[in-house]
Simulated scan of single mutants.
Amino acid sequence: MNDKAHISYHTARRFLIDLIKNNDFSGDDEIIKLLHSILQGKSCLNYFTDGVVSRVHIDKETRIFLLDYSDQEVKMPCLPKTVFLLFLIHPEGVNFKGMRAYLQELYNIYQIVMKKNIEADKIKQILGNLVDPMSNSIYEACSIIRNRLLKVAGPSRMKFYDITGKRGGCHHIKLDRELVTVEHEKLRKMMNR
């Protein structure tokens, strides 16, 4: 899907209409299935990528992309993005109740993700709430992550990108880390430890 044609919507629309009008596709099962799924209101993207596990790309600005599904950024606020990146860094998983052990790492990731300067005490307060076992902050962050990923990955593929685990046990992201590329230098060093 990296070889996308770069033509305007109107040109593509006109080309598609001409193609459909002037060709008999009755013998092409793939096109018939695709047109049928469109008429039933299903996404064309799902037709082409169903069952495909997308690569995750994190660029120099720490923007997250699921390259094989869309060129749309998976936008997240700083705290959920920090949590998502922490779990990508730790394929072995992290126990929510033991997150205090990752406080310094969370702080470092948050500083990378944050685009503007913020007082260190404010960051420590935000992250302190996140790692507090009595707080719901980690569950709220995971809910936001799930919601944002769902928009790009779709429900059938969420199992690869979602932070999952049993209550009281380790939570992790199932995605094969071979599918993750990181352009941001500091973040890449953290991933490769």
Rank of each mutant, 00 (worst) to 15 (best):
K97L: 15
P133T: 02
N95A: 13
K159T: 11
L106R: 01
H172F: 15
G169V: 11
K159R: 11
Y107D: 13
I144Y: 05
V152P: 07
P91I: 07
G169H: 12
L149Q: 02
V83N: 04
G165V: 13
I138S: 01
P91F: 09
K166T: 14
G93H: 04
L149R: 01
A101R: 14
G168R: 12
A141W: 02
G93L: 04
I138P: 02
V113C: 03
I145M: 02
I112N: 03
D176Y: 10
I109Q: 00
C142V: 08
G154M: 06
M99Q: 03
G165N: 12
D132V: 04
I118A: 04
I126G: 00
M158K: 02
K122T: 15
M134A: 14
G128K: 02
G168I: 08
R100E: 15
N147G: 08
S143L: 03
M114G: 02
A120V: 09
V113M: 02
Y107I: 05
S137P: 06
G168W: 12
D162P: 11
V113A: 01
K159S: 12
E119M: 08
Y110P: 02
Y102S: 08
F96Q: 13
M114A: 09
R157C: 05
S143V: 01
V94E: 01
I112H: 01
I145F: 01
C142R: 15
I109M: 05
G165Y: 07
I123E: 01
R167T: 15
L175M: 05
L106K: 00
F87V: 09
T164A: 15
I123N: 03
V94A: 06
R157P: 00
K116S: 12
L106G: 00
Q104A: 14
S143D: 06
D121C: 11
A120E: 13
N108R: 07
K116R: 08
I118C: 09
F87H: 07
K151P: 09
R100P: 12
R167Q: 15
I123F: 05
L88D: 09
L130E: 01
Y107P: 02
K159V: 13
G168S: 05
I163P: 04
L103C: 10
D121W: 13
Y139K: 06
I126W: 04
F84N: 07
K124P: 05
I118P: 05
Y102N: 11
Q111A: 11
G98V: 06
R177K: 15
N117W: 02
A101T: 10
I89V: 09
E92Q: 10
K124V: 08
G93I: 04
H171I: 10
Y161C: 03
H90P: 13
A101H: 11
L86N: 11
T164M: 14
I144V: 10
K122V: 15
L103K: 14
Q111G: 05
D162Q: 12
G169P: 00
G128V: 01
T164F: 13
